[in-house]
Computed example of a mutant assay.
Amino acid sequence: MKTQDKIGIDIFSGAGGLSLGAESAGIKIGFAVEKDISAAKTFERNHPGVKVLCEDIAKVDPKIHSVNKPFIIFGGPPCQGFSLSNTKTRSDENNNNKLFWEFVRFVDDLQPDWFLFENVEGITNYNKGNTVLKIKECFKQIGYDTREAVLYASDYGVPQHRNRFFMVGNRLGINFEFPEKHDKKINVREALADLPVLNNGDSFPVAQYSLPVTDVSEYAARMRIDSQAPLQNFVSKNQDYVIERYRHIKQGENWKAIPPELMKNYSNKENCHSGIYKRLDAEKPAVVISNYRKNMLIHPFQDRGLSVREAARLQSFPDHFVFEGPLSHIQQQIGNAVPPLLAEAIFRKILSY
C-alpha cells in the first residue's frame, strides 16, 4: 500500500458491506476480522488481497497485523442483546453485549484518527439510554470526541427503509456532522425491474437481465457496473400452501390478508409480527431486509420469496458481488449487512474533513 493511502480496519466485518462503502469512498482496507466462516469467505472473495482473520476477536492482537497506524477502525459488534426485536437476551449477561469492549480495545491499541461504530437502533434505549452514554464515556477516556445518530438507509440512495445506529469518533478535535439526506428515495421497482423473472425454488447461478442497461433506473445501472449478468438468482423453495398464501397478499399487505382457513397452523396469530408475509410495495423503498427468508418477504409482482440477487440489490450490493456459503448463510449475511451506499455516504463525509 502507498504511504499516503488512508487505511481502514474492519472488525466484526460480516460479508463486508462497510468495507465496500469505505473502498468506494477511497479508503484502503488493511485487514478484517470475522469469526463466521462463510462471511469471512465472502469478504475474501470480494476484497482480494485483504487479509481476513477468521477467529475470535478477543484473541486477536491488532498491533501484530497493522503495519501502519490506521486512518479509521470500523465495525458492528453482534447486537442481538441490544435489538428491540429480541426480548429474551436483552440483558447485561448476554456476552454479545460485551463485544463492543473489543471494539474499544482495538481503537485504544491502534489510535486511529477516526472510528465508526454501528449497531441496531435499539441500542439507543437499552438500559434506559445508559449503554450509549457508557460507550461515549469509554471513547472520551481514550481521547475521542463522538457523535451519534440513527440513520435511515432510504435517505442515502438505498431502496430500503432500514434504520441503523452509528457513532463516529475522532481524536482530531473535529465536530463531525452526519451527511445530509438525499432528496429522492429509490423504490423497489427502480431497484429490481431489470432482474429476471423467477419461480419458487429456482436456483440459477447466472441468468439474464430482462432490460438493457439503457432502459433501467440510475440506481440499477450503478448496481450493474462491472457485471455482465445477474449472479446468484437463488430463491428458497417454499411449500405449496405457503405459495397459496402469497397469492392473497397485495403489495404493502402482510399476513393479515391471508384467509383464516389458510392460517390454521398458527395457534395464536396475535403473535405474528407485522413483517411476516409482507409483499413489497413496488412504489416505495423496501421494508427492512433482515432475515428475509424467515420473514417470508414476497416479491412485489411474483408469488415467491426474494432471490439472493434481489435482496442484495435492495441492500445496495452491486451485481458482481458474490456471497459464499450455503443459501441460509448467504441470506443471513445479506440481512446482517450495512448497506454499502449508506456506509459510503458516511465515509465520504469523514474524508471531507
Rank of each mutant, 00 (worst) to 15 (best):
F71D: 03
I346C: 12
G157A: 01
F82C: 02
D155F: 04
E344A: 12
L53R: 11
Q315F: 11
Q111P: 00
M1A: 13
E344S: 08
A153K: 00
I7K: 02
C138K: 11
N238A: 04
E310I: 05
A40H: 10
R348I: 05
K88A: 15
N97E: 04
K88D: 15
E310Q: 07
G335Q: 00
Q111Y: 04
V322W: 03
F117V: 06
V206K: 14
G14H: 05
S85P: 03
P70I: 03
E218R: 11
F165K: 11
P205E: 13
R279Y: 02
L198E: 12
F43Q: 06
P159F: 09
N295E: 15
R313M: 05
T42F: 01
S227I: 08
F100S: 06
P48W: 10
M296F: 11
K98N: 12
C138N: 01
G169M: 04
D56P: 12
I27F: 05
P300E: 12
V216S: 10
I27P: 04
N130M: 06
E23N: 06
I142S: 02
F74E: 10
L53Q: 14
R224D: 07
H299C: 09
L351K: 12
V107W: 05
N86F: 07
I7Y: 03
E344H: 07
F301N: 14
P48F: 06
P326L: 00
H182F: 14
V216C: 15
S83L: 08
I57H: 09
Q332N: 06
P212R: 04
S203A: 15
I289Y: 12
K284S: 11
I9G: 01
R309N: 13
Y152V: 04
Y353C: 15
Y209K: 09
K181P: 08
H248S: 15
P285C: 03
G305S: 08
Y277L: 12
